[in-house]
Simulated scan of single mutants.
Amino acid sequence: MTTHLTLNNGVVMPALGFGVFQTPPAETAEAVASAFDVGYRLIDTAAAYGNERGVGDALGASGLPRDEVFLETKVWISDYGYDQTLHAWEKSVRKLQGEVIDLFILHQALPGDFDRTIAAYRALETLLDEGKVRAIGVSNFMVPHLERLLTETTIVPAVNQIEVHPYFTQKALQRFGTEHGILTQAWSPIGGITSYRGDDSRSTFNDPTILAIAEAHGKTAAQVMLRWHLQNGVQAIPKSVKPARIAENFDVFDFALNAEEIGRIDALDTGVRGGPEPEAITLETFGREIPED
């Protein structure tokens, strides 16, 4: 069973990580501590989440050697621009209470001001060259954004973190990434975003196909979805604040889906995005100041 993936620059990262999106800052350290206890060694956060400090606190309290934990965080659009992004690294590394970030990512493409995005990415390239980060990447970049980025910058992103779950697979975007050596990392990998609208009939957790496969393996729907990601070569970062669920989501390395089961899950794709439309992200509507501490 694959437990790690190798990025395009040779850096190795866990195939399954722990996310803290929407985790309240006051609860973050405890949630991350629970994740460490069950075996997670990749933690995904972001400046815009407001909980980088909690991740740093948990790592400091864990006693784990720094080189055993893979930390990734993201630059928010308000800090795009060459000098601004270099400073964003300083803010993040201070909150994470370390010296090196394993994976540093641009959080959105900011398509309406892409020159600013290019400048931000060039700052990531500088940070990589200086050894202040081990890998660089992007998040929520669509094919046109990636095409322009590849044309105007030097280093191919190691990762594109995008919305992927059984109801929204973005296969064409994934294929483009694979063709260029960009690993797909799934946010909302078990489709939690499909449950937010109050219609349980459209939740991945209640999908008859997923539940039938789960029953066949003696696993939960979430575990089946995470196994589906791993077998498709997609890195996944599920989130939870409940210790039992955190442990459940990590217990996916002792079974395998067959090709027919993977095909049945692939066929659930609706093509309907659950998160924000990447083209709609602007500084006017989504800009916010990222605190220094």
Rank of each mutant, 00 (worst) to 15 (best):
G181L: 04
I190H: 09
V241P: 04
S188V: 08
P144G: 01
G54E: 07
G198I: 00
D266E: 14
A35I: 08
Y40T: 10
V133R: 08
S78Q: 14
D113H: 11
A33F: 01
D254C: 07
F141V: 02
T282C: 04
G218S: 11
D79K: 13
Q84L: 14
N232K: 15
V20I: 03
N232F: 01
F286V: 04
V55A: 12
S201D: 12
N8A: 09
I262R: 13
P65T: 10
G54D: 04
L146Q: 09
F205T: 11
L149A: 02
A120I: 05
V12D: 07
V159N: 07
P157C: 00
A158K: 11
D115R: 13
K91H: 13
F168C: 12
T178K: 15
A244D: 15
G98M: 09
K74L: 07
T151D: 15
T209L: 01
D44C: 06
G263P: 08
G39E: 07
A33I: 03
A256P: 00
P24Q: 02
P144W: 01
G177P: 10
L173T: 13
G10H: 09
E27M: 07
T6M: 09
S188M: 08
H217E: 11
M142A: 14
H4I: 11
L128S: 08
L150R: 03
V20C: 08
T85P: 08
N160I: 00
E289W: 12
V159M: 05
W187T: 00
V133D: 09
P144Q: 01
V11H: 08
A280I: 04
V55D: 09
T194A: 05
V159W: 07
T169W: 04
A221Y: 10
D44V: 01
A47D: 10
K74G: 08
A222L: 09
S139N: 00
L124F: 02
R94V: 12
V11N: 09
P24H: 01
Q84N: 15
S139V: 01
L226Y: 03
G192S: 02
V55I: 03
I237N: 04
L257D: 06
I193D: 06
I162Q: 14
T153Y: 03
V32A: 06
D266T: 05
Y82S: 02
V159D: 08
F18W: 02
A31L: 00
H180Y: 07
A119C: 02
G198S: 10
A47T: 01
A109W: 02
L268C: 09
V20A: 03
F250Q: 04
G181Q: 01
K239S: 07
S203Q: 02
T204M: 09
T73V: 03
G50R: 05
F36N: 14
R53Q: 14
A216I: 01
Q170S: 12
E289T: 15
H165P: 12
R122K: 15
R227C: 02
I281L: 10
F168V: 00
T6G: 08
G275K: 07
G63Q: 11
L86A: 09
T23E: 04
G98Y: 10
A212W: 12
V69S: 14
E215M: 11
G63D: 14
I43P: 15
A256W: 00
V164F: 12
S34G: 13
Y82D: 03
I262A: 11
N249R: 06
A135L: 05
I213V: 15
N9Y: 10
V241D: 13
A259I: 04
E125V: 11
Q97M: 13
L230K: 05
W76D: 09
E179L: 14
L268R: 08
D115V: 14
L268M: 05
